[in-house]
Amino acid sequence: MPVVTIQQGPRSVELKRELIKQVTDAFVDSLQIPAESVQVWIQEVPTDSWGSAGTLTADK
């Protein structure tokens, strides 16, 4: 069973629902497996807890 972990900044529940649906559909289509076997975990990281290009995301 595939387990997909997505690390991202905070998003609305509606966006997370759509993300999980589309990721699941991609695995179902590409691996020919049942949707019930796909798990998607979302780890939300506050913008003050990560950065890129040397800058804290909360400061952008």
Rank of each mutant, 00 (worst) to 15 (best):
I20S: 00
V13M: 07
I20V: 12
S30N: 13
P10T: 14
V28M: 00
V40T: 02
P46E: 08
S49E: 15
R11K: 14
M1Q: 14
E14S: 08
V4L: 12
V4K: 02
I33F: 00
L56D: 11
A58K: 11
D29G: 05
D48K: 01
V40R: 06
S52C: 06
D25F: 01
D29T: 14
Q22V: 08
A35K: 13
L19Y: 05
V45G: 01
G54E: 06
S49V: 09
G9I: 01
I42Y: 02
I42H: 01
E36P: 02
T47Y: 08
I33V: 13
G9Q: 14
Q39H: 13
I42G: 03
A53L: 04
A58G: 05
A58E: 14
L15M: 12
K60C: 07
T5W: 09
K16S: 00
P46M: 13
R17V: 08
Q8P: 00
L56K: 02
P46V: 03
I20R: 01
Q8R: 15
R11P: 03
L56A: 10
T24P: 00
S30C: 12
E36G: 13
F27V: 09
V3P: 06
Q32A: 14
S52N: 14
I42R: 00
D59N: 11
I20N: 03
P34H: 06
I33N: 10
K16P: 00
G54Q: 13
V45K: 03
L31Q: 12
T24G: 08
P34T: 13
P34Q: 13
V40L: 07
T24Y: 08
Q43S: 14
P34N: 11
K21R: 14
S49D: 12
E18H: 13
I33Q: 05
D59F: 08
I6W: 12
W41I: 15
T55C: 09
E36T: 06
K60F: 09
